[in-house]
Structures are given as C-alpha cells and as structure tokens.
Design a protein around this nucleic acid. Structure first.
Length: 433
RNA sequence: GGAGAGAUGGCUGAGUGGUCGAAAGCGACGGUUUGCUAAACCGUUAUACGAGUUAAAUCGUAUCGGGGGUUCGAAUCCCCCUCUCUCCGCCA
C-alpha cells in the first residue's frame, strides 16, 4: 500500500511513477485524493460532535453524583439527538473510508528510481550471465521425453488424480525432487545465514492481503472449504508462494532494531490457479498448478533494502552455479514488474531441450509496501517507529530447475549426470535408464 | 464435536455503568544521591487518525481480542465471532 501522506503531498510524483508501469493506475490518484479530502472533512465534523457529547455526558455524570436528577435529565434531552447525527456521519465516514481503502489496496507499488523504464518483457535489461549454453554431440531431448524414458514423472496419471497441470513424480523423479529441496534448504541455512521455517500451506485472507496478492488477484488463488460448512471460518486459501505466510510471520508486530535483519528460508508447495491461462499453454512441467519452491524472505532496515536485494539474488544464483546450470539475471523493467515490488531481478536458467531460458527465481524488494499493509514496524535506534523493507525471492522454484537439470545434464546414453553437490542427497551420481 | 475458564498497556495484574487511556507492581528510559557497582529517591513511559506548527508544543477523536447492540455515557451490561487454556470425545 502506498503512503496516503505521500500521495497527498507529492501527487504528481506518485502519478508519474505509477504511469511508468503503463497500467493506468495513475488515473485513480485524483479519486483517492478526493475521497481522502472528503474523509477528513467528515471526520472533522463528527469528531467535533463527539467531543460535545463527551463533554455533556461527563457533566451528566457529575450531576448524577450530586443527585441533581432533574438537571441531569435536562442535559440528557440536550444530547439525545446528537447521537443520531453522529451515527449518520459515522456511516458516511465508513463509506468514504472503505472506498478510499478499496483503491489504495489496488494501487501497485512505485518502481524504484533505479529500475529501467520499459513497457514489456522485451525491454528487460540483462544484467549478467553465468556459464555457457550446454552443447551436445547428439540431439538433446526435452524434459518430457526424458521423464517418460526414465519414468521420473507420470504426466497422465498426475492428470488422472487432479487434472491437467498436476504432476505425479515417481521413482528417481520423486527422489530427485526431494533431494533438491533438501540441498537448497541446507545451502541457504548453512552458507547464507537464513533461518529455516516451515509454514502452514493453508492460509487466511490477511496473509494474502498483506503481501499484495489480494484483493487484486483473488481469482488466482485456490480457496478451500472445510467439509460442508465454512460459515464461521471465513475463507482459507492454498498458498501461491511461501512468501504469503512467511512474510506475514511478524504482521502487526513492533520489532526491535536489534532483531534486524531477519532472514527466513522456507520450503513449500505453491498452488496457482492460473485463471485465464486455459490449458496452461505449455507442455510438461514448465507451467503447472502445483510446484515446489524454496523461498527466501528478508525483513530489513530501509537503508539496507537494496543491498540486501543484491545479496539475495546472489544467494539464488548460487543454486544454479553449484548445479552447473547456465543462467542469466535480468532486471524487470517498470512495465513488467509485479504488483508489490519496487525493484525485481529475475533469474532465468537455460533449458537446452526447450531452447529457451526459464524463469526460476524472482527476487524483489517491496520496500515498505507490504509492511504498511500488514502493519509491521520496527523501532529504530533513535526511537522512530517505521516500516521495514520486505524482500522476497525464490531460491529457487523447483519444477523448472528440475527441467533445466535434466535437459542440461542428459547424456547420450539416456542417463542423467548428477552434479557433485547433489550426489550426497540423492545417493547416486547418475540416473540411468 | 461437547463442557468449562479466559483474552486489559512492553510484561504481570486490578478494575461490574460516570472526571478510566485505565490502579498497582515489574521492566525500560531520564535525573538526584554515591569512591565504583548495587540500592534508594524523583520523574517519564501506548498506538492510530485528524487539527495545528517551519518543526515542536498543544488540542480533538478512536482504541481494554474482533464486530454489532443498549445508554446522555460502556473495559464494565446484551448478542455474534475469533483465539488461548483445561477436561471429555474423535483422530494422524
């Protein structure tokens, strides 16, 4: 959520930076300002009436104490109708306030000044690449062929269980997936200093609003119901990313400066309805409704936010480096950035069988956009209470990593060479037909 | 799922209709005293929104788990919900 004070005081700046996203959000600013002004005007009126009521009530109390009942009754008559006027004004305030809130919750974050201007993904600058595209002395297969031949994933039966876009990992495939999760968690915990957490996979609405997933992208989530009746529960949702629960761990809290920076790493499955992407548009494991991911979350002082973002990207890159996978890091331009982010780097891994780069990580600094939504603050050394920066990054998504790994390390004989760091987890150096 | 108990400021905990934003204690912070430390003593110690100011000061409103109601007035009475604890049932 954007700071309403910033919108009030620097409306032109806010409009200009929203406009750089190219989604037309700047057109809502004047409406916000109008509602905000209306709200303050109504607040002034109703608070004045409440002050009057409080004053008279207090006098009545004193009169009652002195047993001057008649005088007290007279005063009651005086204030009786004030209550109705207050109630009416309160309703108006609530209306205006929720209209204002509805827009504010749907306005995306302002892109950071260091972000490249652009409209589409074509304009995302490449920051760096690592390694080289794998070359083969034979015709490389794509991951679907490999999975079928080595019986790593049973696509048909996955669809039988849950529908298209759900995967059934089998045999070495299931073991490989588990080994990767373990490797990634250990890497970030032991070498990068993150604290491992394991969140619930079913989360409430507040988590979704807190990270900016809701209300704008409500149709992307799977809502769950308990049995027949959810009337008293409110809706719960399958997490689209571990970011949603983990970033919310300290929601509504006042942290101490000494607690920062906080770094969490979590494994979770991720559930994406992908509404509007009928049939998902891709075959195999590239785009599915459920995939595993190891997620990185940081809560940091604002002045450290962008340094910590660079470190987070480096942490995610390390995953690909130790697995010997060629990748590139791109910066998302203003037009391609996600809703909550002020600055985002994507890491794209090379998948030889696809002949394309696949996004396996997206690392963002959301600045205080999310911490304001979730009322998360910390007390600085000088005693100020301010919102910390919240960062999230994939470290990394698994399904596509799985694809790149198979396609990169496939051998002419149909086997898969397992990179050394993964071998202790999988207890083999090769997956053979 | 059933029965009961509870939710108050950073923490413990008092408060069953009227100067209660809230006693007391602890903690924290500032000060005095002190050879040093400790102790003692004095003081300060919530958040949000709005008005105000260059900035403060200051003023107003709201907040005692959340929402609604009764009343001139609610931490206190009524209703609904959530969560925590204890016991029973069920269960991995």
């Amino acid at each position: 959520m954007l700071d309403i004070k910033l919108i009030r005081e620097q409306a032109d700046l806010v409009k200009q930076r929203l406009a750089s996203r190219g989604a037309g959000d700047e057109l809502r600013i004047d409406e916000v300002l109008r509602l905000d002004e209306q709200r303050r005007k109504l607040l002034g009126e109703v608070e004045e009436l409440k002050a009057l009521r409080n004053r008279v009530s207090k006098e009545i109390g004193i009169l009652m104490g002195r047993k001057e009942t008649a005088a007290a009754e007279a005063k009651k008559g005086e204030t009786r109708d004030i209550g109705e006027r207050i109630a009416a004004l309160d309703r108006q305030v609530a209306e205006v306030e929720s209209a204002r809130e509805a827009i504010l919750l749907r306005l995306p974050n302002l892109p950071h000044s260091s972000v490249a201007l652009g409209k589409t993904a074509e304009e995302n600058p490449v920051m760096r690449t690592w390694g080289d595209k794998a070359s083969f002395g034979f015709k490389p297969k794509d991951h679907v062929q490999i999975c079928n031949q080595l019986k790593l994933v049973d696509f048909e039966r996955g669809a039988k269980l849950s529908g298209s876009g759900f995967l059934l990992y089998t045999g070495w495939g299931a073991r490989l997936e588990r080994a990767l999760i373990q490797l990634l968690l250990d890497l970030h915990v032991r070498e990068h200093g993150y604290t491992e957490v394991s969140p619930p996979f079913i989360i409430n609405r507040d988590c979704m609003v807190g990270v900016g997933q809701f209300p704008k992208f409500e149709d992307q989530a799977y809502a769950v119901q308990e049995g027949k009746d959810t009337s008293t529960l409110g809706k719960l949702y399958l997490l689209p990313t571990a970011e949603a629960p983990v970033a919310n761990i300290h929601r509504e809290e006042m942290l101490n400066d000494t607690q920062l920076p906080i770094r969490y790493v979590a494994y979770s499955p991720c559930f994406r309805a992908e509404a509007g992407a009928a049939g998902l548009g891709t075959r195999g494991m590239i785009r599915v409704h459920q995939f595993d991911k190891v997620e990185l979350i940081k809560i940091v002082r604002p002045e450290e936010g962008f340094d910590e973002l660079e470190k987070m990207v480096a942490n995610a890159e390390k995953v690909l480096q130790i697995l010997g996978l060629h990748y590139r890091v791109i910066m998302l331009c203003t037009g391609d950035m996600g809703f909550a982010s002020a600055k985002t780097y994507d890491i794209e891994v090379w998948a030889p069988g696809q002949g394309t780069y696949l996004e396996v990580s997206s690392c963002s600094n959301c600045e205080e956009f999310q911490s304001r939504r979730m009322n998360l603050k910390f007390k600085t050394q000088s005693g100020d209470k301010i919102h910390p920066h919240l960062l999230n990054g994939s470290g990394t998504a698994l399904a596509r990593l799985f694809v790149a790994l198979l396609e990169t390390h496939q051998q002419e004989d149909g086997s898969i060479r397992i990179p050394a760091p993964l071998q202790p987890y999988l207890h083999t150096d090769r997956i053979v037909p």
